[in-house]
Amino acid sequence: MEDAALRAYLERARTIAVLGAHKDPSRPAHYVPKYLWERGYRILPVNPRFAGEELFGERVAASLGEVSESVDLLDVFRPPSALMAHLEEILALRPGLVWLQSGIRHPAFEEALRGAGIPVVADRCLMVEHKRLFRGALPLP
C-alpha cells in the first residue's frame, strides 16, 4: 500500500482490534497498541489468555468472534502458522484493513483476505510506520 493511501487510512481509522494483545509492557504486542492508544485510537484487545481482564481501557476478548462492533483495522501479533485458524473470524469481522506485524507473512492467508476485498499490510510494524508517516523520518546518527 502506498504511503499516501496508508496515511489517509490511518487518519480515518478510529478503532483497532489487536489479535494477540499482551499485558507484558516489554512485548511488541503491548507497546505497539499502547502507542496507538496514546494517540487516540480505541484499542480492542483480543487474547484468550487474558480474556476478561482490562487493557487500554477495554475488556480483553477471548476471540475475534466476541468483537461485536465495527473495526477499522485489525493489528495481528500471531505467528504465521496460526493465521489460517483465524481466517473465518476475520472474514466475519470484516475489518477495513488487516495489518500483519513485522516478521509475519503468509501468502495464502494474505491472498484469501485480498480475495474477500480486505486489504493487507504484511511484515511491517504499525508503530514504526505510524511514526514515519505522521512525525517524519527519524534522523540517522
Rank of each mutant, 00 (worst) to 15 (best):
A5S: 12
R27V: 03
R27T: 02
G65R: 15
G96C: 06
R14H: 04
S102F: 12
E58W: 11
L44D: 06
A29E: 06
F77E: 05
V120R: 08
V71N: 07
P79A: 05
I104M: 05
V60I: 05
F134K: 09
E38S: 12
P25Q: 02
V46W: 13
P95D: 03
P28C: 13
L133K: 04
P119R: 11
E111A: 15
I90T: 14
P28E: 00
A92D: 13
M127T: 00
P80I: 08
S81N: 01
G52D: 10
T15D: 00
L10Q: 09
R49T: 14
R132Y: 03
H22V: 00
E110N: 07
R94W: 05
A116P: 13
R49H: 08
L140D: 13
F77A: 03
G57S: 08
D123H: 02
G65Q: 10
M1F: 15
D24P: 00
L19Q: 00
V71G: 07
P80W: 08
A61C: 09
S63P: 03
H106M: 03
H30G: 01
H130K: 04
A61L: 10
C125R: 01
N47L: 09
L6S: 14
P80N: 05
V67T: 02
D123R: 02
S68I: 00
L138C: 00
L44A: 08
P33L: 13
M127C: 01
A62G: 15
L126P: 00
L93N: 09
R124Q: 15
H30R: 13
G117I: 12
H130R: 06
H30V: 04
L6E: 11
E89V: 07
G52S: 06
A13K: 09
E111Q: 14
E69K: 12
R94S: 12
V32S: 01
Y31P: 00
H22D: 07
V46H: 11
A5H: 12
Y35D: 06
E88C: 07
E58S: 11
H86F: 12
R59Q: 13
E66F: 04
T15W: 00
P28V: 10
P79I: 00
S70L: 04
S102R: 15
I43K: 13
L74R: 14
P48I: 06
T15E: 01
I43G: 12
V60T: 06
P33E: 07
P33S: 08
R59D: 12
L133A: 04
E129T: 09
E11W: 02
V76I: 05
E2I: 13
Y41G: 06
V32D: 01
E88T: 14
L74N: 07
G136A: 01
S102V: 11
K34C: 01
P95L: 06
P107Q: 05
A116N: 10
H30Q: 05
Y9A: 14
E53Q: 15
A82Y: 10
G20W: 00
